[in-house]
């Protein structure tokens, strides 16, 4: 075990870079995914079939083909058609497109759950379409979106581990190296999974905080309790759980 710790200490300096690569993929992928989601999500609910049709096709395509296939296809096959990208770019593009397609459904669904009356009130004030969306509808939809987007963000982080197989030196790569150094699978992978868990936890806090903030803007926020921000699942309806009692 002390050998393990020594190896871990030796490997620590490179952990920073590895975490950075994983974070770059996760956040880069998330930003791209959000752009894709907004374009496709709004595209999928326009009245014009010429916009709606292609949006739906793209969404279903990236949801339907596996992320694994997509990332390797972009990495191995696309260069043969003359599009060569750096591995990091490949990872970000694949993660962004794949999770963007999922997030597009979240965006569409949340926009649709904003009451029609809000659109109507905005029309009655003669606001233009873009203005209605930006100032009235989106801020309300945003609060609904965040929990589901938080979920996707964690999925995206987990998916980023694939990047190890397209030569990137991410956290998985670091775990693999630690395992080679120590020959102790349990130790190295245990440490590695904890690192992923910590990253996921921090991202979840961030999203919980964003959700509380969005809710407060809608005047629905009670002052956020620490539990809401630091808990992994915000807003668990404790009162319901209490009514129903324990396990049989």
């Amino acid at each position: 075990m002390s050998d393990d710790l020594q190896a871990l200490v030796d490997r620590l300096p490179s952990l920073g870079d590895a975490v950075l690569v994983t974070l770059e993929m996760t956040l880069g992928g998330a930003v791209l995914a959000m752009v894709v989601a907004l374009v496709l999500g709004f595209g999928a609910r326009t009245r014009s079939l010429w916009v709606r049709g292609p949006s739906r096709v793209v969404i279903e395509f990236f949801r339907g083909t596996s992320l694994v296939v997509q990332i390797f296809w972009i990495f191995y096959v696309l260069p043969q058609f003359g599009f060569k990208m750096e591995a990091l770019a490949v990872a970000i593009v694949a993660l962004g497109l794949n999770y963007g397609a999922y997030a597009a459904e979240v965006v569409r669904g949340s926009i649709e759950s904003v009451p029609t009356a809000q659109w109507e009130a905005a029309t009655a004030l003669n606001l233009g379409w873009f203005h209605k969306v930006r100032r009235v509808v989106f801020p309300q939809a945003w609060a609904l979106m965040i929990p589901q987007l938080a979920n996707l963000l964690i999925q995206l982080l987990k998916g980023s581990a694939l990047a190890f197989y397209i030569t990137l030196h991410d956290v998985f790569w670091w775990i693999d190296n630690l395992q080679r150094d120590t020959r102790d699978t349990f130790f190295s992978y245990g440490v590695g999974l904890v690192i992923y868990f910590v990253i996921a936890y921090v991202l979840t806090w961030g999203m919980n905080w964003a959700e509380e903030r969005a809710k407060r803007r809608l005047g629905r926020g009670t002052r956020p309790r620490l539990r809401d921000v630091f808990g992994l699942k915000p807003g668990v309806p404790t009162e319901i759980a209490r009514v129903k009692g324990g396990v049989a």
């Binding site: 987990k158 694939l162 395992q179 868990f197 996921a200």
Partner: peptide, 15 residues
């Protein structure tokens, strides 16, 4: 739930 399936798979496989 919050750690990569891929890493878990390799972990279990090596172990």
């Amino acid at each position: 739930r919050m750690t990569p399936l891929l890493v878990q798979l390799v972990f279990a496989w090596l172990l």
